[in-house]
Amino acid sequence: MDDFSSISLLSLAMLVGCYVAGTIPLAVNFSEEKLKLVTVLGAGLLCGTALAVIIPEGVHALYEEMLEGISSFNLS
């Protein structure tokens, strides 16, 4: 399977999963308190996932930039 097909398949799987997960709170009648709890847990999950992806990517980018700067400094 080529790269485009794998990314397309993973994107489609994420689309379906997110849609199903997003419709669960709409299909179930929650009390006001439980709806707030679901909202807070969803926001926490979203923020935690974003931080788990963004922070390592940022550190990796900074580390690569630092290594490129050191290698170009040594060459001159």
Score class of each variant (00 low, 15 high):
M1Q: 04
M1V: 13
D3E: 11
D3Y: 12
F4M: 04
F4L: 12
F4G: 00
S5R: 15
S5M: 04
S5I: 10
S8E: 06
S8G: 08
L9I: 06
L10T: 08
L10D: 07
L10Y: 10
S11H: 03
S11F: 13
L12K: 03
L12E: 01
L12S: 11
L12H: 01
M14R: 07
L15V: 07
G17D: 04
C18V: 08
C18W: 11
Y19M: 11
V20P: 00
A21K: 08
A21Q: 06
A21I: 13
G22I: 01
G22L: 00
T23A: 02
T23N: 14
T23R: 15
I24R: 02
P25G: 04
P25C: 04
L26R: 15
L26Y: 10
L26N: 15
V28F: 09
V28A: 01
V28C: 01
N29H: 14
N29F: 09
F30K: 09
F30T: 05
E32R: 14
E32N: 11
E32D: 12
E33M: 04
E33F: 06
L35W: 02
K36F: 04
V38I: 14
V38C: 03
V38P: 00
L41R: 14
G42R: 05
G42Y: 01
G42N: 06
G42L: 10
A43T: 12
G44S: 09
G44L: 08
G44P: 02
L45K: 10
C47F: 13
G48Y: 04
G48P: 03
G48D: 03
A50W: 12
L51W: 03
V53C: 12
V53F: 14
I54T: 12
I55L: 15
I55R: 11
I55D: 01
P56L: 09
P56A: 07
P56M: 05
E57F: 11
E57K: 14
E57G: 01
G58V: 05
V59S: 02
A61L: 14
A61Y: 11
A61G: 00
L62T: 01
L62C: 05
Y63A: 13
Y63W: 12
E64H: 10
E64Y: 02
E65M: 13
E65Y: 07
M66H: 12
M66G: 00
M66V: 05
M66L: 10
E68Y: 05
E68K: 15
G69L: 10
G69N: 14
I70D: 02
S72G: 00
N74D: 03
L75I: 01
S76H: 02
S76Q: 09
S76C: 01
S76I: 06
